[in-house]
């Protein structure tokens, strides 16, 4: 049986770490392009979805 954490933020990818607070795995990047690339890799590794919060912060969530 597969057990996974669902409907929770698994990781955060952002250029602006100051916008994120709390106990998350935050990946800090240099620019949006790097964020996109990192978010893509994380989503494939975690089998989860990338959501854009439209303020430079991307979250990875498994649904």
């Amino acid at each position: 049986m597969e057990i996974a954490v669902k409907e929770q933020i698994l990781a955060v990818v952002t250029v602006y770490p100051e916008k994120v607070q709390g106990n998350f795995g935050v990946f800090i990047t240099k620019n949006d392009q790097e964020s996109q690339q990192l978010a893509l890799l994380l989503s494939r590794i975690l089998k989860a979805m990338v959501h854009n919060l439209e303020n430079g912060v991307y979250i990875i969530v498994k649904h």
């Binding site: 996109q36 893509l40 990338v50 959501h51 991307y58």
Partner: peptide
């Protein structure tokens, strides 16, 4: 609409990746 995928005026989901 920015990162929201829509069909006509109905929101489907938020898609973060530009390639997607």
């Amino acid at each position: 609409e920015r990162s929201l995928l829509m069909v006509d005026n109905i929101v489907i989901m938020n898609v973060g990746l530009e390639d997607s």
